[in-house]
Each structure stands twice: as C-alpha cells, then as structure tokens.
Amino acid sequence: MSNAPRYIRPPRLFLALLLALSAWAQDPRRIVEESQRRTRSGSQMYEGDLQVVDARRRVSQKRWRYRRMGSYGDSKALLRFTAPPDVKGVALLVVNHPDRASDQWMWTPAIGRDRRIALQDRSTRFFGTDFSFEDLEERDVDQFDFTLLGAETIDGALCWKIESRPRKKSQYTSSHLWIRQDNYVPARLDNFIKDEVVRRLFYRQVERIQEIWTARELDMTDLRRNSRTILRLEKVRYNVPLQEEEFTVQALRREQ
C-alpha cells in the first residue's frame, strides 16, 4: 500500500469513514435490530393457513384469523381458529410484555370456558405444530449474544449468517440466522441443541406489503420428528385500526 501511487490512494478520512460504516453494518446485533425495525408496525391482521405434515406424511390443515396490536415486546395478539369444525372457535390471546414472559389465555367453546395457559416449559409444541411456544415468542435482541459468521446465499439472495446464543434459559443452545442483505428480511433460521440442528425454518414468498417486507410462507421442519409445518399468510394488512377491547379475556369469550 505504501508503494502505491498517491492518486489511487483513498483519502485518509474517506477510508476511516468506510471502515466505520462497514464495521457498523457488520455488527450482527445491529443487523438483527434493523431487521426487526423494518418489520415493525402498529398492528397486523392476516388469515393463516396451517398445514402440518407428520412423519407418516399425514397432512392436517387448520385455518385461523390473526390480529395483533402494538409491536415488539409490547403487543397483544389474538388468534382464532376458523377451520376445521372441531377446533372452530378455539382462540388464543397473547399479551406480550417487554420485561417478562407473555400472558396467554385460551378459549374452548365446546367446554364454554377460558383457561390461562401457564407455559412453564417453552419447548412445548404449539398445539401439534412443529413450532414450539418459544419459537413464536418475540425475540428481544438484548437477550442474545450475536456473532457474524460470514455471508451465504439463500434462494439466490446474499445473506448475512449470524450466530445467536441465548443469555437466558432456552431449549436451544444456539441458532444460526440468515438475513438478506438487500432488504434485511430473515431467510432462514437453524436452531441447535448442542451441535445438532433440531428445527429449521425457511422464510419464503417475501413480498412488500404496505412498505413492510413480509414473508408470506413460513416453513418449519422438525428434524428429529421428521415432520413439517407450513404456515401461509393470506390477506395480510398492517396498521389497521384495532381497539384495546378486542384483546381482552372477555372479548376472547364473546367473539365466535
């Protein structure tokens, strides 16, 4: 470098700025933070189509309506199953808190009562799907240590490959997260127990809906059980006006 002609040498200030910017962009925590910031919205509604393919290739299907109010760490969500008939009307209310675990209630119309779900083991599967309750939680970046492992291409898109290790108790030892460099949308997530990948999630059909990059298909595989769950999001809308009263235990019982 020192022998290079002076004119091709970048100005010292520019070089310093470039290095600083690059370092900022390469900070894995910032990348994850930015990814979360870009999907933030005041509310969200969609209709979900859930397909579970078990180890014996048997397929079960369910549909639900989903509404969320608030955003990361301080939100309320209501999920109500609409099909098939034997689960129709079953609803789940989740109240997320920034400083502690979420509160959850479930309504089962056939029994005619609500119940509080005291989730003491977050590794429990979410109602027979391949997602665990922990997988569905909102992830606070402060609860993880991140390491940038490099860059890889997923479905033709260049991604940062970031390793996250939980600071608090988790079923997973670590996770590998791929975030697209072009739009900061997550592309893939591998969850490890010790050195073994146990769950793999692909984010597919990424679309920009109301200026928010949204993966319309979440494809989770439980590699130990050899089963797969595909969640398709339909009729996605952001920032729709919703009322606080719609996210109460009373509303859970009221609405069918």
Partner: peptide
C-alpha cells in the same frame, strides 16, 4: 412409531373437544 411421535393426533382437537 418414533421416539418423538405423537399419537394424540391433534392436541388442539384434544383440548377443544371435551
């Protein structure tokens, strides 16, 4: 069949139906 196999075929149906 497998170690982790569930035969409560659908836990949600199990909870939903009394």
């Amino acid at each position: 069949e497998g170690e982790q196999e569930e035969v409560v075929e659908d836990p949600l149906v199990f909870l939903a139906q009394p």
